[in-house]
Amino acid sequence: MSEDFYDVLGVSRDASEDEIQEAYREKATQYHPDVSDDPNAEEKFKRVKKAKEVLTDEEKRQAYDQMGHDRFEQAEKRGGFDGGRGGAGAGQGNPFGGAGGGMGGGMGDIFEQFFGGGGQRGGSRPRQGADLRTTMTIDLEEAYHGAEKQVTVRRPERCDTCNGEGHPPGTDARTCPECNGQGQVTQVQQTPFGRVQQSRTCPRCEGQGELYEETCSDCGGDGVVQREATLSVEVPAGIQDGQTLQMDGEGAPGENGGPNGDMLIEVSVRDHPEFERDGADLHHRAAVSFPQAVFGDTVEIPTVDGSVEMDVPAGTQSGETFRLQGKGMPHLRRRGHGDLYVKAQVVTPESLNDDQREALEAFAEAGGEEVDVEQGFFEKIKNSF
């Protein structure tokens, strides 16, 4: 198992405390000596627990990120991080402890450990690559069933010519004169709490501590080139318009051996001619003839997954809505479907043959209505709706 605490837990260096806690629970379950068959389970369990303790402590995590793994562990073995949290002999005002009760020496020393001295260069610690974003459009049917889609993106990738180094293999290097090979430039200030050193990545060598006589002709010294990549995307059933899919490790390459960023794909679902979507529910307008509305009938209703039959009760009014349970969209990553709501739209014919006209006139007269033939019976019906 890697010594680096972020690698121990399998999280990125900018992971939140909640992400760290979740990763710890998974790893602790995996390596707990009472349940694991791994012969090194006990040692791995201890490392997981130690990683969680450091990375969920704000002060310790800051020190760990600044100092690197080896220097942090050395400082911790010397009592540089626990001495001030307990014992009467430690300086109560110093959260990092240190020798002696004077604040000036202890605080100054710990800031030197944080920011100054030799060891790991400030700009050379592994850093995760940036997340990249793109979009993808799918049909409602693909959102219903789920699909495997191809998306082509243009993204930075590690230069193959120089293996991401920014210079040809074997290129002569010289020590950066700006930082004297440290990868950092440091400003020292004297404060009431002692000497404080504040450091930042050297702008000239970008934290590498070295300058090279020749740059890579393919990437111009950046270590990355822009390329097109085609990715296969698994679209889950039930995805909604505007939601984002994440493809781990498909983003920009990491720096100094750090992991790649992620690819974030925003999904757009096309409008459908038959359905309007509201979450997992769908809405559809169904044409119902006047006789069907009057006498009742069974009509065929389309769904995303094929047609179904629906009973139209006698006396159905135009605009009345019926619910077909479970005929909507699937719920995302859980069982079940939404519903399909069917709104009846009673349709009157624009023209009648003689038999139809006589029958409807008789219908109107039987109901005590006087029909103005010039206006037309169905015109009255249309106006009434």
Rank of each mutant, 00 (worst) to 15 (best):
G315Q: 10
E141D: 12
Q240G: 10
E374V: 06
A173S: 13
Q240T: 07
G367A: 11
Q113F: 14
S351L: 08
Q243W: 01
G296D: 09
I110A: 02
K380H: 13
I138G: 03
P203R: 14
G68I: 08
F5I: 05
E76L: 15
P177M: 02
F111W: 15
A286Y: 03
T134P: 00
V267Y: 03
F114G: 08
S12F: 00
G146A: 09
Q62H: 12
Q325A: 15
C219Q: 04
Q113W: 13
K77R: 15
E266N: 06
Y212L: 04
G119K: 15
G10I: 00
Q325M: 14
A293G: 04
P168H: 04
C219P: 02
D160F: 02
D281M: 10
G80P: 02
H337R: 15
R270V: 02
A237D: 01
E43T: 08
D355G: 08
R85G: 07
P302E: 15
D131Q: 13
N353S: 08
E228C: 04
P313R: 12
A41R: 07
L231V: 14
F114H: 10
S2F: 07
M263L: 13
R174M: 10
S16R: 04
A314E: 13
T137P: 04
E358D: 06
F115R: 12
V304D: 03
E370A: 11
V342P: 02
T161M: 05
M67V: 05
Q30G: 03
D354H: 01
G368K: 09
G106V: 07
D354S: 01
Q208H: 09
F295V: 11
E250F: 14
D37F: 07
G108V: 01
V11I: 05
M1D: 06
D18M: 12
G258F: 05
K60V: 00
D70G: 13
E213L: 14
P33C: 12
Y64M: 05
R121T: 08
T348K: 04
E142A: 14
D65T: 00
L282S: 09
E157C: 04
D339H: 14
P168Q: 11
T161P: 00
A344V: 07
E365N: 11
F193I: 10
A280Y: 10
E206Y: 05
G104R: 12
A15V: 04
F322L: 08
K382A: 07
K60N: 02
Q120N: 10
E274T: 00
S351V: 12
V153I: 15
R25Q: 03
V35Q: 12
N40I: 03
A286M: 10
T29M: 13
Q345V: 09
I301L: 09
H167M: 06
Q345T: 03
G84W: 04
G101E: 05
Q113H: 14
P236I: 08
T303H: 09
G257F: 04
F96I: 03
V224I: 12
K327V: 05
Q92L: 09
I301F: 08
F322A: 09
R285N: 09
F114P: 00
Q325D: 13
Q325C: 05
G194V: 07
F295S: 13
H272M: 06
M103W: 01
V312W: 04
Q197Y: 13
R323C: 04
G68F: 06
L360H: 01
P192G: 09
R155A: 11
A359Q: 01
E157V: 11
P291M: 13
L360M: 11
H167G: 06
